[in-house]
Design a protein around this nucleic acid. Sequence first.
DNA 1: ATCATACCTCCATT
DNA 2: AAATGGAGGTATG
Length: 408
Amino acid sequence: MANFRVSEWRKLPVSLAELCIDTTLRCGQSFRWKKLRDDEWSCALHGRILSLRQDSTHVHYRTTRSNILYPPSPPSSARSSAVTPNAEDEETEALLKHYFNLTPNLTAMYEQWSSVDSNFKKRAPKFTGIRILKQDAWEALVGFICSSNNNIIRISQMVNNLCLHYGPLVGHIDDQAFHDFPPPEALTGPGVESHLRELGFGYRAAYIAKTAKIVANEKPDGWLQNLCNPEPYDPNPDQKPLPEGGREGYREAHEELLQLQGVGPKVADCVCLMGLGWGEAVPVDTHVWQIAQRDYGFGKGKHKSLTKATYDAIGDRFRQLWGKEAGWSQSILFAANLRTFSERVATKIEVDVDEVKIKQEDGTIVESKVVVKRQYVVDEVKEEPDDDKASIIDIETSRSQRAKRRRA
DNA sequence: ATCATACCTCCATT
DNA sequence: AAATGGAGGTATG
């Protein structure tokens, strides 16, 4: 195992309210992180494996690198790495801060959204620390092309398969291979589409192959990166309201992305938000559509179904409500609505006991007790539980001790 | 503009 | 056990 070297653990002070890596890495933004050991997440990024743990006060991180590709620093600087951070550690910390987008004050943002939106205030407390990642735009693009008509488990399998077959090997942890995400040029070959089909990508195989060719061959160098939001994060945003439909740069990036194969409005917004730094991008998928109907009055009148017009109207409504970082707020409500996290949603169990008389074929009547247990999602805004949202979790039927017998 | 349909595959549910 | 529907949609008519 001399081929790889593992750095010391280092730590960065971060509260769980500012970043919860478990929720952030499981909420469907990124598809490559693996939880190998208890509470330790790892992912290949920029030629190294980054591993993370978190406690209530810090994020702990370390890297695993290949000695062959990334030889150790000279002895002069390797000496005191435990006390004095060397260049590699500095670089890793910078990567961590960048990837997890740690500059914005998330606690203040939650407070702001809570003060203007009672629904957010109600649902967010169990989903704190969710940040929008600054992922590589190309990786986000391919990942979300894979997401159409798909579920997070399979998307992750597909993306991992893509990296395994087309991405450079970065290292191993416990015999688990970690590959970096393949650049567009790696996916332009003639056999890519059919190979991806064999790998189970379905109709998305063609989308990825075509999009890779467009990006690598038809667009100028740096085309995708240049769609990034150039503005640094501003903790004291100016008073001028966000333009209807978002800033010009966002609208342009969205429009450009729509030219690609397999990229519609939703995928384009995912890339804008999570890969290009446009906080006002609001991807409206089936979950957000459900949320918009349930909590924000959509699904009736003019916006009965999720047409393009409705899609845009939902984005505009959320931007108007939550502002420049509407996409962040949307993602928090999205996570709160995921089945993956349903155990966090407060539930209430209601038990009904009914006496039932059952007349049997032979004329005898049997008295039975039917116990029905229903589970509700507790809704603190509406006191009344919705019957249509209750799910029956258990029914017991017991015949009473002495069944009364009568003549027919 | 809106609507309907096909598209790959996997999985849970019926 | 075979059928159905849904999964973080998009392209086409």
